[in-house]
Write a protein that binds this DNA or RNA. Sequence first.
DNA 1: CAATGGCTTGCATACGTATTCACGCTGGCG
DNA 2: CGCCAGCGTGAATACGTATGCAAGCCATTG
Lengths: 341, 341
Amino acid sequence: MAERKATSFDIAAKAGVSQSTVSRALRDSPLVNPETRARVQAIARELNYQVDRTASSLRTGNTRTLALLLFEDAPEAASPINPFFLSMLGSITKACSAHDYDLLVSFQHPEEDWYARYEEAHRADGLILLGYGDYVSAHPTLQRLADSGAHWVIWGPRLNFEHGICVGSDNALGGYLATRHLLKQGRRNIAFLGCNSEQAPEFADRYRGYGDALKEAKLVADPDLQVYAESFEDSGANAVASLLDAGLEFDALVCASDLIAIGAMHYLQDKGIDVPGEIAIVGFDDIQAAAYCSPALTTVRQDVKRAGETLVNLLLELIESGDETSRLLEPELIVRESCGS
Amino acid sequence: MAERKATSFDIAAKAGVSQSTVSRALRDSPLVNPETRARVQAIARELNYQVDRTASSLRTGNTRTLALLLFEDAPEAASPINPFFLSMLGSITKACSAHDYDLLVSFQHPEEDWYARYEEAHRADGLILLGYGDYVSAHPTLQRLADSGAHWVIWGPRLNFEHGICVGSDNALGGYLATRHLLKQGRRNIAFLGCNSEQAPEFADRYRGYGDALKEAKLVADPDLQVYAESFEDSGANAVASLLDAGLEFDALVCASDLIAIGAMHYLQDKGIDVPGEIAIVGFDDIQAAAYCSPALTTVRQDVKRAGETLVNLLLELIESGDETSRLLEPELIVRESCGS
DNA sequence: CAATGGCTTGCATACGTATTCACGCTGGCG
DNA sequence: CGCCAGCGTGAATACGTATGCAAGCCATTG
């Protein structure tokens, strides 16, 4: 069957009506006689007719498609994708399906001038930007995007652009919950892994929450126990190693991400240190691996399903009504084994 | 800037040439004078002009877009996506980017009549089908797709359709490698978890490889040690529980997927049984969590990166030259801790 | 009986691009 | 000096759909 695809004209001919009527009938327009509509729709089914979305988009000006732009630190094909973003991708895809929208997915080299490609090229009605803060929000082209009147949402901390909206977790609250829980367990020397990240400004908020919880407990955070880490296992291992090497006393770790936590946990276990017996650990994100490792990782869950739905819903409302506001989602502490409860 | 988007006519006016010339210049046609071309391109840049892909597609008949259809057992938004497919999604996305193609991602309810939506509706030039075998390959609409002359590739075991090509792992080889390795470690009572899966026919090939390795070692597979499981943690736990409850002797598990292996491993650990001391475990897939669990899981890696590239490359060649053949990819044994090496 | 209005339908056009066809101009050659 | 070749350009059109506008028909009403 290399035959030409059926068009609305073919249906029109077969139904003995005009192409306009076919178009209206297929879109359930009230203008067309119910009988005619039924006849046209029957013929359309019979011919396996599908509206040509390309032509339809050209005519109507909208694509019923959203574009997801993923910003990764290392966009080479070799590197694995951050598992948290991968889950977000899954939930966003499902949220789009639910609204009968299609989703274009694409990786972006942060250095590239990605600004124009999608909305400009009339490929999508709106954009979802996903990636660790600095790689996206500090990008000069984001300003251009904001100025362009395009429809977009971004995952991450709130930004001050006139157009475009932000959806993110309340990272400070998350850091606070993690730390308070450890304090309730009686831990007193709590270190924080993930300060001064260049990669992820959201870590700074988590760190702030950690400080708040200590302050509330009338404790002073020991500056030596607050160390740098990025969201990789290696980095978590290095961070905890530096603490051990310095001979510091600590009985718990609040980690700015699960990858850091898992790296740190494995390092401690390799050194024969019991987790959570000697050192309790709390992570952040609740990636899938958090539940699988031993001991299972207590962590601050960012509800990926709700996040994806929120991003998509807000973007669609923004497209339709043009008016929406940024949102902050509440994270949730998931207590497993690594915190010693 | 709510202004109208610039069109090729705007550029034409500004450059003092016709729209035809603009179109040719932007596509680097040799027909147009190099000077004119440079001038036109400069103006296009200046106006932030982007070719309207919708109109372009309508005219040329191709979209430079592929569609990825993901078939999941439980398409409700609540359920998490199988991590192996999620990684494939990532690698396919990257492979498309590398070819400057866009990727449409969409979940499919297996019961639905998904056949027509993409190529038919002129949304994509080709289709990639991804999901556990039966949900896709046994579907009646796949036959319609195969008959329709559409361009598509499917991940999984080879199928006999006239059109369309299959890319999959050599699952039998994988099962063989896993089992042979355990035999080399001196294990003799090796159970297999994942027989008779309704979900995943590829498990049957893995099981066959397991049998081949035993036969090669002149061992007879104990039928009691070959149990049913689907690719969920719970199912793995149940499977190994049934072995323990039956009081059977075994010193190793070959699992048809990593999720099964992780479920089984945790169950054994809960019962105070040492892995790999008393029981060695090998999984299949090499999902991210395999490296993170304790002990780290020895597993048969399906090279997700190469798989994604192969799917995309073959599909593109199929679209362009119309002639390609199915491929079988070699899996690789990744030795970690859970096998007791 | 004429006028009005509601209900259906068809005609014509626009969306923005890519490409076929035709044409004008320049220079070389007979 | 005239003709032809070839390069560069423009005019016109097609891709398939959605929709504003106009018109036809029938029934109702004054």
